[in-house]
Every structure is written in C-alpha cells, then in structure tokens.
Amino acid sequence: MNNNIYLYDGTFLNLLNLISFLIKNNIKPLNIVDANYEPTLLDKIINLKITNNLNIITNIKNSWGKEILKVMYYVYLSNEKYKELIIYYFYLNTLKYKTNILNMRNLKCVNSSLKIFKYVNNETHKLKGFIRFQELANHVLYAEIEPTNNCLLLLSAHFKRRLANEFWLIKDIKRNIISIYDKKNYYLISASNLKMNIELNKNELEYEDLWCTFYNTIGIKERRNDKLRLNFMPKKYWKHILEVSDKNEKSNK
C-alpha cells in the first residue's frame, strides 16, 4: 500500500490499462480517479499517462470470460464513489484465483461489484420503459433523461435496434451528453457541441393528450395503490415520465 492516488483519463480502456499496470508492478493505490476529482491539500496525485493497449479488452474476455468484463464495465458506468478501486480489487482477485470469481460472494469486491452491476442493469432496464420521446417539427424523436448511473450508451444500443428507421436524440441532462442516431449508428457527444432548436411537431400535443387519457383511464379505482406504484416507478424518474409529470394534472387524482 502506498498513499498515492492515480489518475486515468476517464475512459474504460485507460482504466483497465492503468489497473493492469498497477497490478503488474505490485502497487496498491489509495484511490484511482479521473480529472473531475477535486484533490485536497494532502493528496498525492500521480498521472502515469499510460499508453493504451487496445487489445486489453479482448484479452480479458478471452482469458476470463465475457461475464467478468461485463461486470467491470457496468461498475465503471455506475455512480459509485470508489468504483475504480472496486474494479481494481475485482480484477486483482480474478488474477489471483485464476477463475471466474463471480460465485465467490464472500469476497467483498465480488459482492460489491455484483450489487453495483445489478443496480446499473436494473436502472437501464427501467429506463428502457420510462424514456418518453417527443416528436420535433423535423420528425426527429427527442428524449431527456437524468439517471443516477451512466446508462446512455446501453440505452442507445437498445433503441438502435428498436427504432432503427427513426432519427432520435437522447440527452442525459445530468452529465450533459447526448446520443445522436442517424439511422445507421449512434454517437455520444457533449451536449455543448450541439445547438438545438426544440420545436415540437404540430401533432405532438395531441398524442401526449391521448396517452394521458389512456393512462388516467386504465387504472382501476377500487384497487388504487400508490405505494405499489411508487415501488415500481420511483419518484426520481417522474419528472421525465409524461403521464405522471406535472403535465398530466389528473394522474394523482
């Protein structure tokens, strides 16, 4: 153990390369952080500027299996404070036990990783349902999200298959990134680089109204259960879900 904090460039590839380097050289970091980290006076931050080995992802997949890589990637996408350190110990133990360690839940790093994996996976799954697109005047579909974890890339892969022949944009307001799909591929860019004119299609409000009408009708009054609804649809998502947002006044009556 030393007391150094190591810096990576924020990408998954660079994180794996850095971790791999640290393990090879027997260095146990105090923490691993990206450029957004705000250091305190006592922190010793070291930037090794590791050159990326592009094959590292394939190598991990071939040696330890797709599942191991997937868990590490999902942890990387999470909002967990020490996620880099968790990935470090997860990979360290994979190398130590030379096997698929996912069943070894008595290891703290495995248990934490699987919990975070589940959280990211669940949130992505929820958002696949909760995202609401609006049709803009130029027929592009536009949605805003504010997830706890960074689900945008996983969601984009889903909508690439589903809405293959539509132009769509999904904006993560919290991280200020936007996913653009051009009927072939999607691209994630910083939202600051895109000037947008959000003008709704003339039919849009009509369909929003129809959907709210459906929503207000489909619940059975005699079975009203607000607690159950909140369980499945947590309040933090409501702002961007048309039928329970402020736009639908009747939804709570």
Binding site: H125, K128, G129, F130, R161, R162, L163, A164, N165, E166, Y215, I218, G219, I220, K221, R223, R224, N225, D226, K227, L228, R229, N231, F232, M233, I241, E243, V244, S251, N252
Partner: peptide, 17 residues
C-alpha cells in the same frame, strides 16, 4: 419499427400499481 424484449419491459405503472 420495433422488436420484442425477451424479458419484457414495463413502460409505466397505473394508479393501482
């Protein structure tokens, strides 16, 4: 347009949960 998701996807929850 569209595909099915093997696990199914819930898009909303009504006032009865």
């Amino acid at each position: 347009i569209g595909n099915a998701a093997y696990s199914g996807i819930c898009h909303s929850f009504a006032s009865d949960g």
